[in-house]
């Protein structure tokens, strides 16, 4: 199991593997927002938690088509399917690899980008915590979407159409937690809901993803 995980991590890290692209995209989005809404710092402050959450979410979305694509193209996915590792474990490992190489770096980068958007000092901890809790859900849900579209040529846009509606609950609770924290209010409730979603998806969605991968490998 560890071998599969390490292989995925190594694949993502090497040149052309896409590592860092998510971070760069996150940076670009955050930089573009002031150009879109005007230079008023007080406005940036209000929308900062939401924009940072949205930017992280979109950056996660970008690297999703890599989750299965490389293995599917060179046939290693078929090989992995016949291995003694259950498919549910395989898709979970794929999601974990995605989070380690995309989600986690985004979480770590967020505080720095938050400076650009004038996030209030109270907002940093809630932002970090909500992103840390929520990005695993984004990886797991995204892996499901990637499994659905693994056989579709140039399925990136379809992947986005399928995954973004599934992201709505996570985004709502995550951004709300970050926003309430930034305003100095209590944010335990949305954070708890977010944690619930993350735990639920991690526990249950791999079964659906595994079933879908098996269908696509037929």
């Amino acid at each position: 199991m560890r071998a599969v995980l390490i292989r995925d991590l190594r694949l993502a890290m090497r040149a052309g593997g896409g590592f860092g692209l998510g971070l760069a995209f996150f940076l670009i989005v955050v930089v573009l927002v002031p150009f879109a809404v005007g230079p008023r710092a007080d406005l940036h402050q209000v929308i900062a938690p939401g924009i940072l959450w949205l930017g992280a979410l979109l950056a996660c979305l970008l690297s999703l088509d890599r989750v299965f694509a490389l293995d599917h193209e060179d046939g290693s996915l078929d090989l992995l399917a016949t291995a003694p590792l259950p498919m549910e474990a395989l898709v979970s490992l794929k999601a974990l690899a995605h989070w380690l190489t995309t989600g986690l770096p985004l979480v770590l980068a967020a505080p720095f980008l938050a400076v650009l958007l004038n996030l209030p000092i109270d907002g940093y901890a809630p932002l970090l915590i909500s992103l840390a809790l929520g990005t695993p859900a984004l990886s797991v849900i995204g892996t499901f979407g990637a499994a659905l579209t693994v056989g579709v040529k140039r399925g990136g846009l379809l992947l986005s159409l399928l995954v973004l509606p599934l992201y709505v609950p996570t985004l709502i609770f995550g951004a709300e937690a970050a926003r309430r924290g930034a305003e100095g209010l209590g944010y335990a409730m949305p954070l708890a809901m977010l944690a619930g979603i993350t735990c639920g998806t991690i526990a249950l969605l791999p079964f659906a993803s595994a079933a879908v991968v098996r269908v696509n490998l037929r």
């Binding site: 499901f144 659905l148 056989g151 399928l162 509606p165 599934l166 709505v168 609950p169 709502i172 609770f173 709300e176 949305p190 809901m193 979603i197 969605l205 659906a208 079933a211 879908v212 269908v215 696509n216 037929r218």
Partner: peptide, 30 residues
């Protein structure tokens, strides 16, 4: 394949649609 994939999507989507309903209620009332 299409029938299989879309039926799983419908199932998963139903759960998330329900979840979204409550999330949106929270989002606006809150």
């Amino acid at each position: 394949t299409a029938a299989d994939l879309t039926s799983v999507l419908c199932l998963v989507g139903s759960v998330f649609a329900l979840l979204s309903r409550y999330a949106v209620l929270f989002w606006n009332q809150g």
